[in-house]
Design a protein around this nucleic acid. Structure first.
Lengths: 146, 146
DNA sequence: TTATAAAAGGACCCCGTTGTCCTTTTATAA
DNA sequence: TTATAAAAGGACAACGGGGTCCTTTTATAA
């Protein structure tokens, strides 16, 4: 459904939020370890996120990644949009370029329902809400920390 | 959601069914043209489908692809299973290996709903049902034939 | 019984996503 | 004010899915 890099991005952001709540600004190495992603690749992803201002970073000694407190909650949709665009919310489940309500593929109605439901979810869910679940012990980020 | 080759496979099977109903057995070239897929690649996909006996084929002059009339309707799930396995119905939306009901990722419940709904659809829908929709003019396979 | 038309199959290529490595920039602690 | 620790950035490598091409097998029509 989502690209691997998008998944890494979401997990990374959740971890940053958790650490921020503890007053810490994690760096690439710590983040990569926690989300079980390759460090160098995580660095690239974090770069993308900061370049698009979904996340802030500080260079130099004592630097790391953090959320600017001023900004609002970050929806999963915003993350997906920046990481891979939103083609997945528009594509025909049958692979037809011409498929739409007026000119439906045979799977159009059923697939649309699923796709739209997913779209709703990612627009409503936020990094902060997911992080909160983990903080309360209702969910996990990997099989470690919790 | 589905691999491109799976989409081609489904479209190809639908077209074969439509032609079979007209008493014809289409060949690779005709199928590829209709479903707007590369001919050589379509050949590979059709090979996979016949090797797994979802479809029958006849070599030599006057040959082509067709459904064995004896066999039951073919569900989309069967096609997906043969083409790309069923990982997409089990994978965590967050990319976690350890995610399950007892050990959920923060997105588990919501994602599961979408995933399960899609699973239901592909188990219920069949190549024959989709073909019938096209035959009745209720849906299209590309922007041509209808 | 041979020429032809078709699927089957093997070997290979291409490209985007994933992933690495090394250098540069920037900030801070000593 | 310098050594160090961190992110930023550019260039490149690897892998897998998508895709091509050519040869082999098989059937049929002439």
């Amino acid at each position: 459904m989502l690209a691997k890099s998008t998944e890494y991005a979401i997990r990374a952001l959740v971890f940053v939020q958790l650490r921020n709540w503890e007053g810490k600004r994690p760096g690439v190495v710590e983040i990569a370890k926690e989300i079980e992603a390759p460090p160098a690749f995580s660095a690239k992803i974090l770069q993308t996120l900061t370049r698009h201002r979904l996340l802030d970073s500080a260079k130099g000694r004592g630097g790391g990644f953090f959320f600017n407190n001023e900004q609002n909650e970050l929806t999963l949709y915003q993350v997906i949009h920046v990481m891979e665009g939103d083609a997945c919310f528009h594509r025909c489940g049958f692979g037809l370029k011409s498929c739409n309500n007026d000119n439906p593929c045979p799977l159009h109605e059923q697939y649309k329902e699923v796709r739209d439901k997913f779209f709703e979810i990612v627009q409503e869910e936020t990094i902060q809400a997911l992080s909160e679940k983990i903080r309360k012990g209702e969910a996990v980020l990997n099989r470690g920390i919790g």
